[in-house]
Simulated scan of single mutants.
Amino acid sequence: MKLITVKRETKQEKRYTPKMGELLTRVTYIRKQFLSIPYKTLHRYRETYYGEIKDCEACSLAR
């Protein structure tokens, strides 16, 4: 039994970018877990409309 694991989870979120406005996009979180309890987010990224992978720091959750 492993105590520390790394899990990837994808969910849809609303994001806002100055060029495109508000959009609904798939955001993937890579998290460390201790006994199946997430405690640290290692990285998060999103997939654009055209299939490119971008970091989530370029857009915000609200206007």
Rank of each mutant, 00 (worst) to 15 (best):
T25S: 06
Y29H: 09
T28N: 06
L35P: 05
C56S: 09
T25H: 02
Q33K: 15
I53W: 07
E57F: 07
R26F: 10
L35C: 15
T28H: 05
T25W: 01
L35Q: 11
R26M: 07
Y50W: 05
I37E: 13
T48G: 08
G51K: 02
P38H: 03
E47T: 13
L24N: 12
G51E: 06
Q33C: 15
E52D: 11
Y39V: 14
I30H: 04
L42T: 09
R44N: 04
Y50M: 04
Y39Q: 11
P38S: 10
L35K: 10
P38T: 04
R26W: 02
S36G: 15
R46V: 06
I37D: 04
T41F: 04
R46N: 06
L24K: 09
Q33M: 15
T25P: 00
R46G: 04
T48Q: 08
L35E: 09
Y39W: 14
T48V: 10
S36V: 05
S36I: 04
L24I: 11
E47M: 02
T28Q: 04
P38I: 03
Y49N: 05
I53G: 00
L42S: 04
Q33G: 04
T28Y: 07
I53F: 04
V27C: 03
Y29N: 03
K40E: 15
E52A: 02
C56K: 00
E57V: 03
D55Y: 02
T28I: 12
K54V: 11
T48R: 05
T28G: 05
S36C: 09
L35Y: 14
R46H: 07
L42A: 06
H43T: 04
T28R: 02
Y49K: 06
R44M: 11
D55R: 01
A58M: 02
L24F: 11
Y29T: 05
Y29L: 06
I53V: 14
Y29K: 06
E52F: 02
R31V: 15
T28F: 07
E47L: 04
T41Q: 14
R31E: 15
G51R: 01
Y45M: 08
L35V: 14
Y45D: 05
G51V: 06
L24E: 08
I37T: 13
Y50L: 08
S36T: 10
E47W: 03
Q33N: 15
H43D: 14
R26T: 13
L35T: 12
Y39P: 07
V27H: 01
Q33H: 12
K40A: 14
K54M: 02
